[in-house]
Design a binder for these strands. Structure first.
Length: 873
RNA sequence: GCGGAUGUGGCGGAAUUGGCAUACGCGCCAGACUAAGGAUCUGGUGGGGUAACUCCCGUGAAGGUUCAAGUCCUUUCGUCCGCACCA
């Protein structure tokens, strides 16, 4: 055995042995009777080229659980794959003249090797690359089933268009008016696009939350995104028909304020907007307004506060209950894609309507009086009254509390056939088509005679052609690829055009976890019964940035797979039972500012910075540098740490241990080389304990039980306490950081322990064996190496998880704190199960306690066995 | 503006059911070993007071419940994140 712990010498050796032994390959969930299945999944990476520290952390968290669960006897599915379609591959093609396919697969090879070097325990026999036709063909088949059932459809819509990516984006993929991937400005364009009907599942997405053990923040983000509002749809009549319509609907969450309506506002995109303007005195002006708002709408609004603007159409609506004529306005703040695109305006009780009414001198009508306030005067209002109160000026409903009036007025609307109670959602259907090359082709054909024709199942997959020229200009290369585009109609045989849009890459990531369950199934996305055995994913680990993108799409796709028969009807309805969102890996970043252009920040790598008199300067330019604080590692801020470098220097085990110890999984890890050294030091201490006491340890006979005393007893208690703590920290608590702390304490105890008798060696051996087993999910290479050095056969993986001996945990005596009036006044040694009288007597005998009790009447005694004795005087 | 999370030593963090605040690590200080130490080992390390002592204070701030509060309740401030004219 080596004097010093040299990670580089042992890590490749063990990686090879695990692979050779097929240690992580798993069959079906039910293969080992009596063993429970556990599906542990981490979000699959995009093969960008090299792994970064965020990957290292995400996968270390997953691996520590996966390895521990296997040792506990579970049948563990722990797969890995590649989210391999997407824009960066096309950019690489343009910038580096490499084919996206070649670039992607070479990145995959590189990253796979990096993941192996970190010792992650994946079942590589199930590896998936989503750009492989054997994967995406099933996606095409599922899409066609959706199309057949009306769950996918094509429509002309105003969509988010990213200029830089030259493609449309789904609502979820626009952040602050910018593209989620490239940060480029997003504009609105009216285009013919493909959608998946996620809104059909809006309510189920909400209801399913009760079944999920997910972080509150993620559930809240989803809830807000789905945006359920209860209210009423109210039909207003037109004073005279508009485009053959005699009425139109508004959506409101405040039917209680219906009698306060003084005008109606509709969106510029409303289908009746043009017809309303027709024949108006100022028709041209209204039409110009409509056109202006339609164009500037979304992008300007996302920039912040947009001033409310509107124009009177010259037309009137008829109030469904009072029959009053109220003016119809077109207003820039009314959204077409929410509710009905039209709102009833109640300026006395709605802030937006109030602002609009004041600007255009429209009347207000108070219909809710707050309790205990004299008459609210509509003219004197300085802001809308949105609180609760009793109805006034509302006909038969006067005097009702406004909460009750909601249902009362809705009931009246129903009785008069002028409306109904309804629910509105903010969630929109998922726009899945993209005008990009490197994606899964949407399997339809456009025929002049037959319209949109699905590609027949026999012709699937529609392969993405490889012989394309990618220039980044002139739209999708597919549209210019004649032999791809030109085809015949499957129905009538006439010449037809193939669809050239591809799917959003979020389509691939919406079902990859289903595919992992039966990755080699040739004719179907999954083999239903075997997939059913593995599902749901018991623990899913990944970043919170996917809270409303991936995690909504994947839930919907899972519902769809069940409802379309790809999964059994009795499959768990929710795909991810438990979710763990890991935090970022951060490091301080430094920048200088160019004197010639002070707005321009230039970021510096740590090695390009020199320290003089406690201040930082750029080595090249000499500029003084400023700290941007501890921020997420990113290439642009040049505060990244390359995993390969630190693995080469400290070993994969130390790197894994550090990222697991530095913070609990949801927290942020501040990168620190000193901290990493601390982790490495810990592993060296473990190494030293084994090396220095190897002889005694190897010669020790197994601990056979029986009474112990003194230090051996204490050590054994420490060992079994550690087993208990680590087991619980890796189990229900999902806190590897505290498990590491517990192991460090055990190592401290083992270092201090001096074996003198045979029984001491036996106890020490039991402790070291337990420590190595507990450590192996964290630092698997060094744990296996030390196990072997002590004469162990094979890997610790096969050895099982240590079991707590309750006898070892038992305390002969504990130190019990004694509190008097809430303050600790002494400690007494008592048996852990001592009764109150014994403990009280012991406390009275303690000098300091006695002094505090002197001359005072004991009023109350509270004894929490094993915890504390509290006396009140 | 709305919603969520969060606030504990110099730093990362621990405290599992209301029961000994600061485990574990980093950093720092002292000592040992040494020709040497940026290696290793040992000890110390919230603040204050004292001759000494389990003497006092202390979990962003203020109040409350309780024998007992980092933990529960009310109010408030700060930070981070998400959404943002959603009718």
């Amino acid at each position: 055995m080596r004097e010093r712990y040299e990670p580089s010498e042992i890590e490749t050796k063990w990686q090879q042995r695990w692979t050779d032994a097929g240690a992580f390959a798993v069959g079906d969930a039910g293969d080992a009777p009596g063993r429970e299945k556990f599906y542990l999944l981490e979000m699959l990476p995009y093969p960008s080229g090299r792994i970064h520290m965020g990957h290292v952390r995400n996968y270390a968290i997953g691996d520590v659980f996966a390895r521990q669960l296997r040792m506990r006897g579970k049948t563990v599915l722990h797969p890995m794959g590649w989210d391999a379609f997407g824009m960066p591959a096309e950019n690489a093609a343009i910038e580096r003249k490499r084919h996206p396919m070649e670039w992607t697969y070479s990145n995959i090879a590189q990253m796979r090797a990096q993941l192996r070097q970190l010792g992650y325990s994946y079942d590589w026999t199930r590896e998936i690359a989503t750009c492989d036709a054997s994967y995406y063909r099933h996606e095409q088949a599922m899409f066609l089933t959706m199309l057949e059932r009306g769950l996918a459809y094509r429509k002309r819509a105003i969509a988010n268009w990213c200029e830089q990516c030259q493609t449309v984006l789904a609502n979820e993929q626009v952040e602050d008016g910018r593209c989620w991937r490239c940060g480029g400005a997003v504009v609105m364009k009216e285009l013919l696009q493909w959608f998946i009907r996620t809104t059909a599942y809006a309510q189920e997405l909400l209801d399913g939350h009760t079944k999920l053990d997910w972080p509150a923040s993620v559930l809240t983000k989803q809830r807000n995104w789905i945006g359920r509002s209860e209210g009423a749809e109210v039909r207003f009549g037109f004073d005279r028909p508009v485009a053959n319509e005699s009425s139109f609907s508004v959506f409101t969450t405040r039917p209680d304020t219906l009698f306060g309506v003084t005008f109606v506002s509709i969106a510029a995109e409303h289908p009746l907007a043009h017809a309303l303007a027709e024949g108006a005195e100022n028709e041209a002006e209204v039409l110009a307004f409509i056109e202006r708002i339609r164009v500037e709408h979304r992008t300007r609004r996302d920039e912040g506060d947009l001033e409310k603007e509107g124009i009177f159409t010259g037309r009137y609506a008829i109030h469904p209950l009072t029959g009053a004529r109220v003016p119809i306005w077109i207003a820039n703040f009314v959204l077409m894609d929410y509710g009905t695109g039209a709102v009833m305006a109640v300026p006395a009780h709605d802030e937006r309507d109030f602002e609009f009414a004041r600007k255009y001198a429209l009347p207000l009508k108070v219909v809710i009086q707050p309790e205990g306030v004299a008459d609210l005067d509509a003219d004197a209002l300085t802001e809308a009254f949105t609180g609760s109160g009793r109805l006034v000026g509302s006909g038969a409903h006067d005097g009702l509390p406004n909460d009750d009036a909601k249902s009362a007025i809705t009931a009246e609307l129903v009785a008069r056939e002028a409306g109904r109670g309804t629910v509105s959602y903010r969630l929109r259907d998922w726009l899945v088509s993209r005008q990009r090359y490197w994606g899964c082709p949407i399997p339809v054909i456009h025929c002049a005679a037959c319209g949109v024709v699905p590609v027949p199942a026999s012709q699937l997959p529609v392969l993405l052609p490889e012989d394309v020229v990618i220039t980044g200009e002139g739209g999708s290369p597919l549209a210019r690829h004649a032999s791809f585009v030109n085809t015949t109609c499957p129905t009538c045989g006439a010449a037809a055009r193939r669809e050239t849009d591809t799917f959003d890459t979020f389509v691939e990531s919406s079902w990859y976890f289903e595919r992992y369950t039966t990755p080699h199934e040739a004719t179907r996305p999954v083999e239903p019964a075997r997939a059913r055995g593995w599902l749901p994913v018991d623990l899913y680990i990944g970043g919170e940035e996917h809270a409303v993108m991936h995690l909504i799409y994947a839930r919907v796709w899972h519902y769809l797979m069940i409802d379309l028969g790809y999964l059994p009807a009795d499959a768990p309805r929710e795909p991810f039972a438990r979710l763990l969102c890991q935090g970022m890996v951060c490091q301080e970043a430094f920048y200088g500012t160019d004197p010639a252009n002070p707005a321009h920040r230039v970021w510096y790598y740590p090695e390009d910075i020199e320290l003089r008199d406690g201040a930082r300067f750029a080595k090249d330019t000499g500029w003084p540098l400023h700290s941007a604080g501890v921020v997420k590692m990113s290439k642009t801020k040049r505060n990244v740490v390359d995993p390969d470098e630190v693995v080469a220097k400290y070993g994969a085990d130390a790197v894994r241990l550090f990222v697991l110890f530095a913070a609990p999984p949801p927290g942020q890890v501040d990168w620190s080389e000193e901290g990493l050294e601390g982790a490495s030091r810990f592993l060296q201490r473990v190494w030293r304990i084994v090396r220095e006491r190897r002889e005694a340890l190897v010669g020790a006979r197994p601990f056979a039980g029986g009474p112990l005393d003194g230090a051996a007893r204490d050590l054994r208690r420490a060992v079994h306490r550690t087993i208990d703590r680590v087991s619980r920290d890796l189990g229900e608590r999902l806190q590897p950081n505290t498990a590491v702390a517990a192991m460090m304490e055990l190592v401290n105890a083992l270092s201090a322990f001096k074996p003198e008798r045979d029984v001491d060696a036996a106890v020490m051996r039991e402790g070291v064996d337990a420590l190595l087993s507990l450590l192996s999910p964290f630092a698997p290479h060094v744990a296996d190496e030390l196990f072997e050095a002590l004469g162990g056969e094979g890997s610790l993986l096969a050895r099982g998880w240590p079991v707590v001996d309750p006898e070892a945990l038992r305390e002969d005596a504990i130190e019990l704190p004694v509190q008097i009036n809430g303050k600790i006044r002494g400690r007494v040694q008592v048996a852990p199960d001592a009764d109150e009288a014994t403990v009280l007597a012991a406390a009275r005998a303690e000098a300091n306690v006695a002094a505090h009790l002197e001359g005072r009447a004991l009023k109350k005694v509270l004894y929490v066995p094993g915890r504390i004795l509290t006396l009140v005087v």
